[in-house]
Computed example of a mutant assay.
Amino acid sequence: MFRSRSKDGQDSATQVADAEPQSRDPQAPKGRPTPKRSEAQSQRRTLATPPAGRKEAAKRARETRRTALSRQREALASGDERYLPARDKGPVRRFTRDFVDSKWCVAEFFLPIAVTILILSLMPSLQIKNISLLLWLGVIVMIVLDSFSTAFRLKKALRERFPDESRKGVVGYALMRTLQMRRMRLPKPQVARGERP
């Protein structure tokens, strides 16, 4: 009679202990950066008071969108991974950017070469117009060959460095980056030319 009660008491105590949530290990990473105190306080204030009406809600939405865009612009300039757009996030995309930025590409000079060829084609001389057409053809062939070479080398480097990660769309991302002049690229280049990524 007494034994059954003590067993029941132990069972209920273990059930209560199991029902209580486990406390998180303070040394374990939480998976997100700790916000600054000012950011946390402003978020608490905005969450604590609900918007008075539609205009207030729209105003708050505009402000949050504006702050998110300004963070994103700063991240594009500095290369901060936390606030980059989704298309630029991740180690694979970062390696791709570094791979492209560390090399000279013919495609990045496309715009100045195109302007030069356009000026030559406006000259009255027929020989200069023919030369500009040949230059145009040569530039296109060089860009295509350089793009194939870049894509092949990038695929090989990605297979070696990131065998288990998704590489979908990375080659197109790299080729679009080669078409931009180096100082116009966003996120800004983080490696010097000739430096190994």
Rank of each mutant, 00 (worst) to 15 (best):
K7Q: 08
Q10T: 13
Q15W: 10
Q15E: 07
V16I: 15
A17T: 13
D25M: 01
P26E: 03
P29A: 07
P29E: 14
P35I: 13
K36T: 10
R44Y: 08
R44F: 04
A58C: 02
R65N: 08
L69C: 04
A75F: 11
S78I: 05
E81Y: 14
E81C: 14
R82K: 06
R82L: 15
P85N: 04
R87Y: 14
K89A: 10
G90N: 01
V92W: 02
R97A: 03
D98T: 04
V100Q: 00
S102F: 01
K103H: 05
W104C: 02
A107D: 00
V115F: 13
T116N: 06
I117R: 12
L120N: 15
M123W: 09
Q127E: 04
I128L: 14
I131Q: 02
W136A: 15
W136Q: 09
L137Y: 08
G138T: 04
V139G: 10
I140K: 14
M142K: 13
I143T: 00
V144I: 04
D146H: 00
A151I: 07
F152S: 13
L154H: 03
A157C: 08
P163L: 11
K168M: 11
V170T: 03
Y173R: 09
L179Y: 02
L179M: 09
L179F: 06
Q180S: 06
M181Q: 15
R182Y: 01
R183A: 13
L186A: 02
K188D: 00
K188C: 00
Q190R: 06
Q190P: 04
A192P: 04
G194N: 01
P197E: 05
